[in-house]
Amino acid sequence: MGAVIELSTHGDARIARAREAAARVCDPEVPVLTIDDLGVLRDVRRDGETIEVVITPTYSGCPAMDMIALEVDLALEKAGFVHRKVTLSLSPAWTTDWMSEAGKAKLKAYGIAPPQGRAKGRGALFGVEEIPCPHCGSLDTRRVSEFGSTACKALWRCESCREPFDYFKCI
């Protein structure tokens, strides 16, 4: 009986250690954020002897996913996990609502406006957004383009400080 309990706590400790290692992996396109901040890291679990890390893509065509999967695998290897796998899960679909508050603060400090409010449906399609400038805080900003340097960002400009900035789109 004691042995079984010991085995399962041992298992939980392994999962915690694996999670810690995986959670430190950064998004190659927004290196200030970890995959944990982003909400891309969905689960760390045990499948027999194998540690399984589940990640979800931000966008269907996100080119960073292969890189992230590789980095997670490397992080687990470095942490001493021999039997490991990284699984890609599509459902439920990733949303910016999963981004941590710490993540949003890091984004802003990095010069990227964090997603505003919660992801909405069709109602917001033709709506007007109010995005504060990450540099000076002004609300006198303008969207230059719906699409920026990566799929997850839009291109904006501040009319007060005249600086262009990226906005992490709300989806």
């Binding site: 599509l90 459902s91 439920p92 679909a93 399609l125 699409f147």
Partner: peptide
């Protein structure tokens, strides 16, 4: 079909931006 539903849920968010951008 769960798999189609999962793929579509992601794609829907993306097409919302395509629609808005192209409409503008």
């Amino acid at each position: 079909d769960e798999r189609l539903a999962a793929i579509a849920a992601k794609a829907e968010k993306e097409m919302a931006y395509h629609l808005r951008h192209s409409a503008e």
